[in-house]
Each structure stands twice: as C-alpha cells, then as structure tokens.
Simulated scan of single mutants.
Amino acid sequence: MSRYHSSRSSHSSTTPIITLYDTPGQSPQPWAPNIWRIRFILNYKRLPYRTKWVEFQDIEATLRSIGAPPSSRRSDGRPVYTLPVIVDPTRNPSHPEILSNPNNIAEYLETHYPARPVFPDGSRAMQSLFVHYIQEVFAKPLLPIMVPLSARGLPERSQPPVSTANSLPPGPQRERAWQLVKEQFDFLASILDKNSGDGDGVCAMGHSVSYADFALCSVLLWIENMAPHDGWARIREWNGGRWIRLREKCREYMDVY
C-alpha cells in the first residue's frame, strides 16, 4: 500500500527536518489512523520529514524523554501520552517545536507552512466539525472490531497480555457490528452525495482533497491494514465503490519517509 522513499528526506545529517513519531505493526505498513492524518498532511504539503518508530509500550517513556506535551489528561488529571507527535527544528533548531494531538499538529502545520493548504479558505470551522464527527461518531462502531485486531497486529513485544479480549468472533454478533458500521458509511455517503454536482462527489470539499478527506481516508487505511479480508473487502464494495475511489484520490500522499 504505502511506498517507502528516501529522496525527499535525503538531506545531510546536519540539516534539520521534521520528525514524525509513529508506532509499528507487524506488517511494514503504517496503520494508526491518527498518525496517518499527519503523514497525509506532511506529504500533501511536500514537507521533508523522517519517521521515528516507537513500539507501543515505549511510547510514554520516549515522549517524556523528549519533552513532548501529553496529548490529553485523564479525569483525575494524570497525563496521557499518545502518538502522533512531531518535532520540528526547522524554524528554530536550538528550540524545536514539539507537538502532540493530531488536531494541534494539523493546526500548527497549516499555520506555519501555509503553502498547499489542507484547510481551503473559509473551511476551517466546517472541516474541524467534520473531523470531530469522524472521530467521535463515525468511527465509534468500528472500535469493538478494530481495537482487538489492532492489538493483535502489534509486534509481539508490544502486544497486551490478552490481545483477544473483547474481540468479536465470527457469527451474528460480529455481523451486527459490521451492520452498525455500514449504517455510518451509508449516512456519510448520503451527505457527501450532495457534492455530486461539484467535482466528482468523492471529496468532502467537492473538487480536491483536504484535511477532512485525510481524516476519513486514515480510517479506511486502518481497516485495510488490520482487517483486509473481513473489513476492507466489505467496505470497498459499499456505496458504489465510493470509498475505494477516495482511497485512490489520496494515494499520491501515502508515501512513508
């Protein structure tokens, strides 16, 4: 799926470039949707960067060691450290910017690297609302299916002691879970169809890809990587092939550096 390259990142060892922190799965392909959102932006904006791979159980210690801010806090105030994180020394090598939380990173990249905007003029509020919907509503029915599959897809050292906990075995319960997923895809397709007279109707903004499309395509890549036969094989056929067309629209921004 992804193409690994070194050409855009082939700077001298002394040339500062952005570092994107990612966590590997068992396959060589990146899988985590929140991290894909940022990788898409970096590729779309043609920003030189390199990936630093951190296994799942090392994330908190690694992020604390580089001074990364927590991505959120628990109800009791304790910090939560998650990926993605970027370190950007290009603007001030002696005091690099270190950012966590995909929404914060997206805003930072758009503000400081405005060329090839992922938020076209006047769309930032609506796209932010769309991405919130993708995270908080659209993806929710996927969690009982995808979280256990993602745990099993981690390298052996990173797998939780019982990685099959809460998994859905084949049968009626799993089929019901996929039906709930399909209902979300059907609803979203009905909304995006309103763009059919403006562009090809695949992109959220009509004509060209934007942050909203990257957020959605990141979920598609998560499913494709972790559930290629049970999940992606279904979804690519739904809604007249809309989702495979979106994936193809985003293909040129799927390089991994």
Rank of each mutant, 00 (worst) to 15 (best):
F187I: 01
R176K: 14
L168G: 11
R157L: 12
N239G: 07
C203S: 09
S75T: 04
D198L: 05
S75I: 01
L47Q: 09
W222G: 09
L20F: 04
A115V: 07
T164Q: 07
P89F: 06
G241I: 09
H132C: 09
E156P: 09
P79G: 10
R116V: 04
S27E: 13
V219Y: 02
P102M: 08
S65V: 12
Q127F: 05
T15Y: 06
V219Q: 07
E97F: 00
C250P: 02
Y49G: 14
R247F: 12
G240C: 07
N225K: 00
M205G: 15
Y21E: 10
V137W: 06
A106G: 14
F56C: 05
F40H: 13
L142E: 07
V181Y: 04
H132T: 12
C217Q: 02
Q173V: 15
P79D: 10
M1R: 02
E248Y: 03
P70K: 03
L42D: 09
T164Y: 01
H112R: 06
V219A: 11
I235K: 01
V85M: 00
F185D: 11
T111L: 02
P89T: 01
E136N: 14
L20T: 02
Y49N: 10
C203T: 05
I134R: 00
I105E: 11
S9T: 15
A68H: 12
Y133S: 06
E237H: 05
S163H: 04
T164D: 12
D230P: 07
G25W: 03
R37M: 14
M126Q: 14
E107K: 03
I17E: 14
G201Y: 08
N239F: 04
Y108R: 04
S12R: 00
S27N: 09
I66R: 02
K194W: 07
W222V: 08
R247T: 10
N92Y: 03
A32W: 08
Q135S: 14
R242M: 09
